[in-house]
Amino acid sequence: MADFEPRIVAFACNWCSYAGADLAGVSRLQYPPNIRTIRVMCSGRVSPGHIIRAFEHGADGVFVSGCHINDCHYGFGNRWAEKQIEKTLKLVEMLGIEPDRLKLEWISASEGEKFATSIRTFVERIKELGRSPLQR
């Protein structure tokens, strides 16, 4: 298990979180190379189907990030995302997938450090959990 490298799908909203991830880059903050990011305009675009699909296909973790509540570029998208992810989290848990494998994090464009730390923490947590129960 020491060699286990988790495969993680990340969703990032264009305005805050994707910009935060870019800032982490500009600041050369290192984090593990386990995530593959899918850019969406708003975290509200991410649907439970996308997340379960990722797990079904073999993701060890799914990371969703958007603007902080009240900061949404569109005003309302992340509030809906929050509800949507809450539901998805329940589904994921019922499917016997550890809920920690799905993480919703609010990251702003100035939070490069937070992006890097969040990914680091998430990857570490996934490593602790080991390979997805569906892939073991």
Binding site: S47, P48, I52, R53, M94, L95, R136
Partner: peptide
Amino acid sequence: THGGTFQELMRIQANERLRQNK
């Protein structure tokens, strides 16, 4: 419908390692 959520739920349940918690 529902962005394919139910089809995904169905497909994932075919995974032999699945241990549910429902």
